[in-house]
Amino acid sequence: MSVTNKKIIFTGPVGSGKTTAINAISDIRTVTTDALASDMTQSRKPQTTVAMDYGLITLEGDERIHLYGTPGQERFDFMWNILIKGGIGLILLLDNTRTDPFQDLKFYTHAFREFIEQQQMVVGITRMDLQRRPGIAEYHQWLEQLGLNAPVFEIDARNRKDVITLIQALLYSLDPGVSVDE
């Protein structure tokens, strides 16, 4: 039986909850960036590392959904190019307590523009429990200004149900005819 491999990519600024979100739904413990990065530096075997978060969901019949989180600290587009290959969609997490979430939204949607247009993006706004404003309606307006339309949800990355909603919205957006009854 052939093995199916698909990727879902999580991106967003530092501390927006990427690692936490991947952890919430991954079967395996998220492989963390830093451990890998320093291992790699020591061993000098770059192909053994990815400098990013990694999680995995294994389905019956050996189908695998790989969950990748971009490094939030620095933005390297060549990493992203590798990352998005074979990706089915992008989950953009934005931290509502940051000074300029609109700037973050602009930055990430610009960087992944082509991928978003070909595939699908879903936006999760984290830390709204700490900072209510901007509200979801403002994010809608901003996306409109950027000529984009994507589902936007308030989420807490620590809440598995919230993270699942992001994935659900991604899958349904890619195929509204999908059903759990099949």
């Binding site: 199916t4 698909k6 919430a24 739904i25 079967d27 969901i57 389905l59 019956e60 189908e63 959904i65 089915i88 598995r160 699942i164 994935i167 659900q168 899958l171 890619l174 195929d175 509204p176 005819g177 999908v178 059903s179 759990v180 009854d181 099949e182």
Partner: peptide, 25 residues
């Protein structure tokens, strides 16, 4: 029309089932 099944419909369904069903987590 969305009746035409898309390429990954089966996979997406299985993933959803898994996530919503609780599964391993």
């Amino acid at each position: 029309s969305i009746t035409e099944p898309k390429k990954n419909r089966g996979l997406f369904s299985r993933l959803l089932k898994r996530l919503l069903g609780g599964g391993a987590k």
